[in-house]
Design a binder for these strands. Structure first.
Lengths: 253, 253
DNA sequence: CGATGTGAAAAAATTCACAGCA
DNA sequence: TGCTGTGAATTTTTTCACATCG
């Protein structure tokens, strides 16, 4: 770790582990809540509980960012909010476009969590001409024909795909062609993108299936349906969470 | 906590790694697509490509399930679909309730991937009296007052929370109290649940924040405002997670 | 004192690479 | 011959435990 390039108490110079990056938003949210309640400082133990992870992990995660705490005291909430925000790149404004304004697209457009976190919905795009001009979440929907113009005109680099599966790849190609380099895909398809483009997926059916797996295990600790010697419900808790709260993982990342 | 382990000493087979479980739905989707095209067999290489992972990982994953392939040939698509479905507990019908029928709840209710994979929407529940009786996705919305009755009456063990953050914990408590043991949470809150209850979280803003992190890294290799150089993250990914594509789901109408 | 920060150990996940079977 | 299945090696992530410092 650390490319100790001298300068500063080092640490954090190279790559912050992906697993850590995935948890930073979690910490940020817990910190924001504390901030709103005007809580000045918080210990790793308290913050960890609020975020749903264990304190050792949290401290290790923070150690990749730098030494932002005070021994014997804890962390300054405001300072940490700033540091994590900066690390995540949320101190700048990210214009985002949402393509596919169906039920989900509308839900996303109305989702407050975006605007409050450095993301700004630059445009809503849909292929249905009937949708054009119609306001959703106060933003007029624009037609797919203008996709490239919209992307380039607003310097959009992050796109959200909420179209039906069949249209996803095509939309993806156009987004990438217009300059988008990060895509959040809600369509149930594997998107292929060129190098340099990030794709993250959110898949409801997958999450449900994982739940079903654990649920099945809870119910059948012994009564095994299908024969097959290999099948023996056993071991492993169903909870499988850290020492405290819950906090599964999301990402799949 | 650290209590409650014991149980069976892992009977050789049933110790499927969590990471593997999380990928089974991916394989299942790819296999289903092949099945619909009447493809009889598939090699680990081909299937891996379709699912967006590398073949070594896929073979290793399958090895936890058993030896379902044929050397020199590959895997029988239908057989594998069945085995994975069974492993995930999808050969049975899972009644699910969705609580919070706002934009997101409605989107989820309309999501086709539900019914097609062993999940059945047993009921839609909302706290707004005005919603009661109103059909969403063909299912009449019921009032929160009847939550317990609905859960118990339908033997529901999986609940989806799509309410505002403020109501999530309360709804969660009621679901758990009524017998739900698996929860898919879309509200941006950490839910606390008793042991034995699984919670998985899907947080749209978190996914975007992770994208922003990578996006920032791509763009800002040059100069960063605040002191500390922001990691140089050299080579490495272009496509975060898996070797390439992804597999999302959820989609509007 | 008390809580952070962090080496070191442990566990989990991924990748390698090849023996072995159809 | 071709591809699976898997032990072994490697890498990543988590957890431990304690020196350290405010």
């Amino acid at each position: 770790m650390a490319t100790g390039r001298t300068h500063r108490p080092a640490t954090r110079s190279r790559g912050i582990p992906e697993a850590t990056v995935a948890r930073l938003p979690l910490y940020l949210r817990a910190l924001t809540a504390l901030s709103e309640r005007s809580v000045p400082t918080v210990s790793s133990e308290e913050l960890a509980a609020a975020a749903g992870v264990n304190s050792a992990k949290l401290r290790k995660d923070f150690s990749y960012l730098g030494s932002y705490g005070t021994r014997g005291v804890g962390y300054d909430v405001e300072y940490l909010v700033y540091q994590i925000s900066r690390e995540l790149g949320l101190t700048q404004d990210w214009p985002v476009v949402i393509v596919g304004i169906g039920n989900l697209g509308a839900a996303l457009a109305n989702y407050g969590g975006f605007a409050s976190r450095g993301f700004r919905i630059a445009a809503l795009i849909d292929a249905d001409p009937a949708m054009a001009g119609k306001p959703v979440a106060g933003i007029p929907v624009q037609h797919t024909d203008d996709l490239e113009k919209i992307i380039k005109g607003n310097g959009v680099s992050i796109g959200v795909i909420a179209t039906p599966a069949g249209a996803a790849q095509q939309v993806c190609d156009r987004l990438v062609g217009a300059g988008v380099t990060s895509i959040l895909n809600f369509a149930p398809t594997v998107l292929s993108v060129p190098d340099g483009v990030d794709v993250r997926k959110v898949d409801l059916s997958i999450e449900l299936q994982i739940l079903a797996f654990h649920e099945q295990r809870k119910a059948g600790e012994e009564a095994l349906p299908d024969g097959l010697p290999a099948s023996a419900a056993a071991a492993r808790e169903s909870t499988d969470k850290g020492p405290d709260g819950d906090v599964p993982a999301v990402m799949p990342a």
